[in-house]
Amino acid sequence: MKLTKFVSQSSLDWIIVLAGGLCLLCIAFPLRLTHAGEQLLDRVVAVVNQEPITQSEVETMMRPIETQLSQAYQGQELAVQIEKTRQQLLSQIIEDKLVLQEAKRLGVEVSEAEVDGKLKEFQRQFGSEANFNRMLEEQGADIKLIRKRLREQLMMQKLHYIQVQRRVVVSPVEITSFYEEHPDLFNEKEKVKVWVVTLSKSDEAARKGIMDEAAKGKAYQALKRLQAGEDFEMVAKQMSQDSHAEKGGLIGYVAKGDMIGTIDDVIFSLPNGTVTDILQTERGYHIFKVDDRRPPKTLALDEARDKIHDILYEKKANVRFEEWMEELKKSAFISLR
């Protein structure tokens, strides 16, 4: 279980969206996303206008997604979520191929300068150009193939802008009407700014729901340092074992009710600038710090305008995208194997 109550459907959708970027990484560095000595079954699972989608393509993209899901689910529920996500991923791959094929048919152009800019963004994921070049050499990756994939991504983005984004308009009248019709959406709960130090249990301890003495011991070491006056962010960077560690343990502003029950109760009863004792969850041991409380409030129309615009824009864009995708699918040959 994660510290938040659950992984929502929107979170699962976001994981799927991230797969677009992971696809490029899988193509560029396939050895990093497959287990050593393991061969992926390579059979055709779908055909889109005579272009095949293979099992290995889907499973290679699924590997990092399964890692994300395993942090939130276990057992049969994890298996259900993995299969559900695999089907969503296959649907996205099919739609991506349709969009790219249409971009090629329409002659959407991407300049070398645009590909260069996209490549620099991609390189930054590796910290520096030197690290990127070293990874290319280690993995035997082809920079020409990477540039080709980046060009295709840019072609798809341009066509998406033409067919979807450019056609969506949200009027001031729509924003005002939405505000008046959905007042509860603009009542903000109390929020606190939260930091965390996490010491993870071993996979066995987490799976069996038992204590992990080693992890708990490290948590006590972290708590002792904090109680002695050491900086929370420094301790988090040095000892924490979750995704917040590199930011000094910063989670950000958390609304009341967002965290699992016991943790939620503790952090919202904690005085500003203080830390909790060690709190245990299924996945590990946690120490929280809170600061900068924001009381509950109701947003005025002007304060909520941008939020409403984004809500309505996303809704309209999704509708327009589905309409466009249906048009593409009607004129396409799609076969699921």
Results as ranks from 00 to 15, higher is better:
146 I>Y: 01
148 K>V: 05
102 E>Q: 06
192 V>M: 08
149 R>Y: 12
126 F>G: 02
114 E>F: 09
105 R>A: 09
112 E>K: 13
185 L>C: 10
70 S>D: 01
119 L>A: 02
182 H>M: 01
190 E>L: 13
78 L>P: 10
130 A>M: 14
116 D>C: 06
134 R>S: 12
167 R>W: 14
89 L>K: 09
144 K>F: 08
103 A>E: 03
126 F>I: 04
79 A>S: 15
100 L>R: 06
119 L>N: 02
162 I>F: 14
182 H>T: 06
114 E>M: 09
184 D>S: 09
79 A>C: 12
152 E>R: 14
80 V>A: 14
89 L>Q: 10
141 A>S: 08
190 E>C: 12
83 E>F: 03
187 N>G: 10
151 R>M: 09
195 W>H: 07
141 A>Q: 05
127 G>Q: 00
75 G>M: 08
73 Y>W: 13
159 L>S: 01
151 R>A: 11
149 R>I: 13
66 E>F: 00
122 F>D: 00
157 Q>R: 06
90 L>R: 01
196 V>E: 08
171 S>R: 01
110 V>G: 01
96 D>V: 10
179 Y>A: 04
152 E>I: 14
186 F>R: 02
163 Q>A: 11
136 L>N: 02
83 E>W: 02
81 Q>G: 09
140 G>E: 05
109 E>W: 10
165 Q>F: 15
120 K>S: 12
123 Q>F: 06
174 E>G: 02
143 I>G: 03
133 N>S: 12
103 A>T: 01
122 F>I: 03
78 L>A: 10
142 D>A: 05
148 K>E: 08
149 R>C: 14
119 L>R: 02
186 F>G: 04
167 R>K: 15
192 V>E: 05
95 E>I: 12
135 M>V: 05
142 D>W: 04
166 R>H: 15
162 I>M: 12
173 V>D: 04
161 Y>Q: 15
95 E>W: 12
110 V>T: 06
146 I>T: 02
192 V>C: 09
97 K>Q: 14
197 V>P: 03
169 V>Y: 00
91 S>R: 13
82 I>G: 03
111 S>A: 06
158 K>H: 01
153 Q>A: 09
175 I>D: 00
98 L>S: 08
121 E>A: 10
176 T>C: 01
138 E>L: 13
187 N>A: 11
187 N>Q: 11
106 L>G: 04
162 I>L: 13
175 I>L: 02
100 L>H: 04
93 I>G: 00
109 E>I: 10
91 S>C: 15
148 K>M: 07
175 I>C: 02
194 V>T: 07
125 Q>M: 11
166 R>V: 12
186 F>N: 02
179 Y>V: 03
96 D>N: 15
69 L>F: 02
134 R>Y: 13
129 E>T: 07
143 I>D: 08
78 L>Q: 09
73 Y>G: 11
77 E>P: 10
132 F>T: 03
197 V>G: 03
170 V>G: 00
138 E>R: 14
126 F>A: 02
146 I>S: 00
183 P>M: 05
137 E>S: 14
